[in-house]
Design a protein around this nucleic acid. Sequence first.
DNA 1: GTCAGAAATTTCAAGCTTGAAATAACGGCG
DNA 2: CGCCGTTATTTCAAGCTTGAAATTTCTGAC
Lengths: 153, 153
Amino acid sequence: MTDPAKPDPLSKRRLKSWIRLLGVTRAAENHLREFLRVNHDTTLPRFDVMAALWRRREGVTMSELSRMLLVSNGNATAVVDRLEKDGLAKRTQSATDRRTVYVALTEEGLRQFEQLATDHEGEVNKLFASLTEDDLDALTEILKRAGQRGETA
Amino acid sequence: MTDPAKPDPLSKRRLKSWIRLLGVTRAAENHLREFLRVNHDTTLPRFDVMAALWRRREGVTMSELSRMLLVSNGNATAVVDRLEKDGLAKRTQSATDRRTVYVALTEEGLRQFEQLATDHEGEVNKLFASLTEDDLDALTEILKRAGQRGETA
DNA sequence: GTCAGAAATTTCAAGCTTGAAATAACGGCG
DNA sequence: CGCCGTTATTTCAAGCTTGAAATTTCTGAC
């Protein structure tokens, strides 16, 4: 496919773009982490899990959850454990397959996430306020292309 | 500045773009983590610290290091501790200010990183092979704009 | 039906990360 | 000089994360 003898002239530029991408992502994550901590006394991973459970309210298995969030199984278990301990999530055994477990937000988890989500969206909107509609279009296009290999490789 | 009564019509789109950005970044990080683990028996945070020490070979303080990497002081201390234990990095007390500590790669750290860096760049290049020169230009432009507020907010 | 392999989850140790508190040193102001 | 606020680093507890091993259950080939 690619010729290892012929060095890619774009290689350095791709690396630089990746580093910049990482920088922007980290900065935004740090900002949002702080926001969630100060204003809602919660954390990014908890928010991520709750968001996934919200998006798939009909129920998700632990495996699906970790696949959605791109984290390991053990990680999903740990975060769900803590959410469950705090009464925000609930596990239910599958009736048809005794190996699988469904996770869902509790009433309280649902309520809490709805408040969270609005504020979170507002903060993201502020954070990326400098991006215009055209920027978003272009970015989406490029990220779609970039993810092509990245996510499945 | 912004009118809270008038909801931003781009808000949802910014959120979606952010989620996509996060997804691509996470997928790439997972891929690179695996790559470093399998082929070089090291980790992403170690690589990041070594890269920073490489870029600033004349010496960096712990504070500068954590600022460069956008991580907490405690985190920098921990990773440098482990690198130092493995003989890849070395701390030196400042002569003029007894509070500050300079960190640098050792000879071995330098050697190891140079091998690492080449392979890492190649992997990043493969990962983002689908991005053309125009893509990289556009992406850089957009990320620069996005970082404007993000990094300093 | 049984058994081997695959799949879902948990457990665990080790490493990563944060945020806050502790320690130590600097620098300016009185 | 001596104090006070700031700065640089480390320490620490708690939470996050991974990757591998362990456990349990399912499924298909026989």
